[in-house]
């Protein structure tokens, strides 16, 4: 029984909790991709670098606040800086929309041209981020690091295994829940949100109903920028900030959006967790877990790791391929935002 409990705690500590936090971070990013897809009708390749830019803006504000001696008690100062970072990021995306994407909308270019333009924007943003903050790791977490420390947990429960709950993980989950609820409320209950859904559903009819496309597009960009910034900051607090890592998040986020069904917000969230849990469970070494669960004689020898962590991006890719082969429309059907 104790072995079983130990195994459960071990599993929670290394798979469940990190998986939930990572899933929530991916889900927020994938939501942005899916929203942009359903309104602007292209896959935004600049999304990873948008996250990087937003996070960078927040980090700069965090440093500024820290230099002024402002802190947020036990919570990371980055939370205070978040609104400012979102504002800067929103301005940036609106500028790219004005000077890049709007042109292609006006000439009714094929979607792949928009995708291509977004690749151009991706490199521009990538360069901008590296230019301003450099290509290296930045750690900007301050405040309390842990809500539950592994040692305290061990002492309190008397188990061999400890369960650590990082404050960044708890924060991720709370912020994600708040943000997603707010987003769904906005889409389903407000006039602007409904007009976004209408626009995504049937653009021509939306125009005939007097919905202003420019307004819908603007609001969508602002939401996507906010989601990307928050997702990036949460990821950065949880792990660390490095521009190239954020660029690499693009693939899991696309996979998440496609798994759930592109254009489907619930699908994006579902997809985020599917991708995150696949990644974590496939790259986790199960040796210790089975040592607890199996009788001593059967204790495994190898690491029992399905795939080395270097291949975690392969997991999202495999998921993507399976979905494209088996069910290209994604898990949830119907294109609605």
């Amino acid at each position: 029984m104790i072995d079983f409990l130990n195994a459960f705690v071990l599993f929670s500590n290394f798979v469940l909790v990190p998986g939930i936090a990572y899933g929530a971070q991916l889900a927020l990013g994938a939501l942005g991709i899916t929203l942009l897809y359903s309104i602007l009708r292209f896959a935004n390749f600049a999304h990873g670098d948008l996250m990087a830019f937003g996070t960078m803006a927040v980090i700069l504000f965090t440093w500024l606040f820290q230099s002024w001696g402002i802190s947020f008690g036990p919570l990371p100062t980055a939370l205070l800086a978040l609104p400012f970072g979102i504002a800067i990021t929103a301005i940036l995306v609106l500028l790219t929309d004005r000077f890049v994407y709007r042109h292609y909308r006006e000439i009714k270019a094929v979607p792949i041209r928009m995708v291509m333009a977004s690749v151009g924007v991706m490199f521009l943003m990538n360069g901008l981020v590296r230019f301003i903050i450099g290509p290296n790791d930045q750690n900007f977490m301050d405040g309390e690091r842990f809500i539950i420390k592994a040692r305290a947990f061990k002492n309190a429960t008397g188990l061999n295994e400890g369960l650590a709950l990082k404050s960044s993980q708890a924060l991720t989950i709370i912020v994600a829940i708040i943000l997603v609820s707010a987003l769904f409320w906005f889409l389903n209950r407000t006039r602007t949100g409904k007009s976004m859904r209408a626009f995504s559903d049937n653009e021509d009819l939306a125009l005939l109903s007097g919905i202003s496309p420019q307004k819908v597009v603007t609001v969508t960009w602002i939401i996507a920028a906010a989601l990307a910034t928050v997702a990036g900051v949460l990821y950065g607090l949880d792990k660390s900030f490095k521009p190239f890592t954020y660029f690499q998040l693009l693939l899991p986020m696309f996979a998440a959006a496609i798994v759930g069904g592109v254009g489907h917000p619930v699908g994006a969230i579902l997809g985020g967790f599917v991708v995150a849990f696949s990644e974590v469970t496939v790259t986790y070494a199960y040796k210790k877990l089975f040592t607890y669960l199996l009788p001593a004689d059967y204790a495994p020898e190898g690491l029992l790791q399905l795939l080395s962590t270097d291949y975690k991006f392969a997991v999202s890719f495999i998921i993507l391929v399976v979905v494209l082969l088996v069910r290209p429309t994604g898990l949830l059907k119907g294109k609605v935002i």
């Binding site: 006039r191 409904k194 007009s195 859904r197 209408a198 995504s200 559903d201 049937n202 021509d204 009819l205 939306a206 109903s209 007097g210 919905i211 119907g334 294109k335 609605v336």
Partner: peptide, 20 residues
């Protein structure tokens, strides 16, 4: 053709008609 918002409820369709 394509004269309703298929992913929205009947009531929301009417609301969108009154958008202006």
């Amino acid at each position: 053709t394509a004269n309703v918002f298929t992913g929205m409820s009947v009531e929301e369709n009417l609301e969108m008609g009154a958008f202006l």
